[in-house]
Simulated scan of single mutants.
Amino acid sequence: MRRPLLPAMIAAIAALGLASAAWADSLSVPIDQSALLVLPPGTQNVVVGNPAIADVNVLDSHNAVLLGRAYGVTNILITDARGRVLLNRQVVVAGTQTDRVTLFKGATPGAPAGPENYACAGQRCERTPMPGEADIDYSRYEKPYVGYADRAASAAKHNP
C-alpha cells in the first residue's frame, strides 16, 4: 500500500519545488517609478520589509502598486486572513536602463573625475545625480531634488 503513495508524494514535492521557484523570482522596479502588482486571491495583508527602499499602495482586492523609493533590495510579503503566506518575493529597486546617459569625465583643474548622469527624452537631457558620483558634484544637485520632494510632500499634507 505504501508504493502507490510514493509517486503521489514525489509529484507533490515536485509541485512545491516549482511553486517555491516561481515565488523565488524577484520583482524589479526602477527607482522613482512604480509597477502594477496583481494580488493573489484571498489577499488580506501586504507588507514591505523596508518601506524606505520600496513601498506599496493597495488599490483594491486585486491590484496594488509597488513604488521604488531608494536603491536596494527588500521583500514583499502577502498573507491571507489566516496568516498563511501567499507570496514572499524579493524586491529589487535599481536605476532605469533606458533613456539615461552617463558621461564619464577625466579630472580637470577644479573638477573631479567621475560620472555625470542624465535622464533623456527625445532631444532633451537633464542632469540627474546618482549615488556614486563625486561628492562635490552630487551635493550641488542633491539639495534641489530633496527640496522638491519635501515641498511635494508638504503640499500633499496640506491638500488632502
Rank of each mutant, 00 (worst) to 15 (best):
Arg84Asn: 15
Arg127His: 05
Asp80Trp: 07
Leu77Met: 10
Tyr71Pro: 01
Leu67Phe: 08
Leu86Ser: 02
Ile78Val: 15
Leu77Val: 06
Asn117Met: 02
Tyr118Lys: 04
Cys120Leu: 04
Gly106Tyr: 08
Pro109Lys: 10
Pro112Gly: 15
Asn75Phe: 14
Val101Gln: 08
Gly83Glu: 05
Gly106Thr: 14
Ile78Ser: 05
Arg100Ala: 15
Cys125Glu: 07
Gly110Glu: 12
Tyr138Asp: 12
Tyr71Gln: 10
Arg127Glu: 03
Ser139Lys: 12
Pro129Ser: 09
Asp137Met: 04
Cys120Gln: 04
Gln97Ala: 05
Asp80Val: 09
Asn75Ile: 02
Ala119Cys: 01
Gly132Ser: 12
Gly110Gln: 10
Gly114Arg: 12
Asn88Asp: 15
Ala134Arg: 02
Asp137Gln: 09
Tyr71Gly: 10
Gly95Ile: 00
Val85Lys: 12
Gly132Lys: 09
Thr128Trp: 03
Ile76Leu: 14
Ile76Gln: 09
Gly114His: 11
Gly132Asn: 09
Tyr71Phe: 15
Asp99Ser: 04
Gly132Trp: 12
Asn117Ala: 11
Val91Ala: 08
Gly83Phe: 04
Ala94Trp: 01
Thr96Leu: 15
Thr108Leu: 06
Val65Tyr: 03
Gln123Met: 09
Asp80Asn: 15
Tyr118Thr: 03
Glu133Thr: 11
Pro109Gln: 07
Tyr71Thr: 03
Gln90Ser: 11
Glu126Pro: 00
Leu67Asn: 04
Tyr138Ser: 08
Ala107Thr: 13
Tyr71Asn: 12
Gln90Val: 12
Ala121Pro: 00
Arg127Asp: 04
Val85Ser: 14
Glu126Tyr: 12
Thr79Gly: 03
Gln123Gly: 01
Ala113Phe: 01
Gly132Arg: 13
Val73Ala: 08
Pro115Ala: 15
Arg140Ile: 11
Arg100Pro: 00
Leu86Asp: 03
Arg127Val: 07
Asp135Gly: 02
Tyr118Leu: 15
Leu67Tyr: 06
Leu77Ser: 06
Arg69Lys: 14
Leu66Tyr: 02
Glu133Gln: 15
Ala94Leu: 02
Gly95Cys: 00
Pro109Phe: 11
Gly106Ser: 14
Ser139Arg: 15
Cys125Ala: 09
Lys105Gln: 06
Arg89Ser: 13
Thr74Tyr: 04
Gly68Tyr: 06
Gly132Gln: 08
